[in-house]
């Protein structure tokens, strides 16, 4: 996390992204205030009720938001490495595909896709190879964990073909 090789002082100007963080923190605090306001504050016999701790956390978040804004203004956040967007999109796509296909296509196919898309995120873009490899690998894992070790993993068409 401290890969910043350049000293942070090289870019001492207001940091826009860090301002966004401050706003997000303040917004979370707002959500807590709003959500907790509809709770029955009935504390029973303890004066610390179900709303007390959330309130305390929300106030602290507001304080942290202000602090973050000040550091952002002074540009005191560490320098960030340039991020490549494409690999992130590949991998997030893989996770999303697995999530959406899990119930329909079963464990092997959906997880095989995740495997292939993650590999694509790291530069192996030959999907016609990686998808089958991923599916076979996932299927073997499914057999081991689901059939031998009794873990309940969702079955789909491929699994039903064999079992």
């Amino acid at each position: 996390m401290t890969d910043g090789n350049k000293p942070a002082s090289a870019t001492r100007r207001p940091d826009g992204a860090a301002f966004v963080i401050a706003v997000v923190l303040a917004a979370i605090a707002g959500v807590i205030f709003w959500d907790v306001s509809r709770l029955a504050g009935a504390a029973g016999y303890s004066q610390v009720g179900p709303t007390t701790v959330p309130h305390a956390i929300a106030y602290c978040l507001l304080g942290l938001a202000i602090w973050t804004a000040i550091e952002a203004w002074r540009g005191e956040f560490p320098a960030r490495e340039r991020q490549e967007v494409a690999p992130v999109v590949w991998i997030v796509g893989g996770l999303a595909a697995q999530m959406l296909l899990l119930k329909v296509a079963g464990f092997s196919i959906s997880t095989g896709l995740l495997f292939a898309l993650t590999a694509a995120g790291f530069g192996k873009r030959k999907l016609w190879i990686t998808i089958p490899v991923g599916i076979v690998l996932s299927f073997v894992i499914w057999v081991i964990f689901s059939k031998l070790l009794q873990l309940s993993l969702p079955a789909g068409p491929l699994e039903h073909l064999f079992f």
Binding site: V136, F139, V140, V143, K147, L148, F162, F163
Partner: peptide, 15 residues
């Protein structure tokens, strides 16, 4: 090879 193994497993478990 994996499919082969898997089908043996499948047979064993269907018994």
């Amino acid at each position: 090879k994996h499919f082969f193994l898997a089908s043996i497993l499948a047979g064993a478990m269907a018994l």
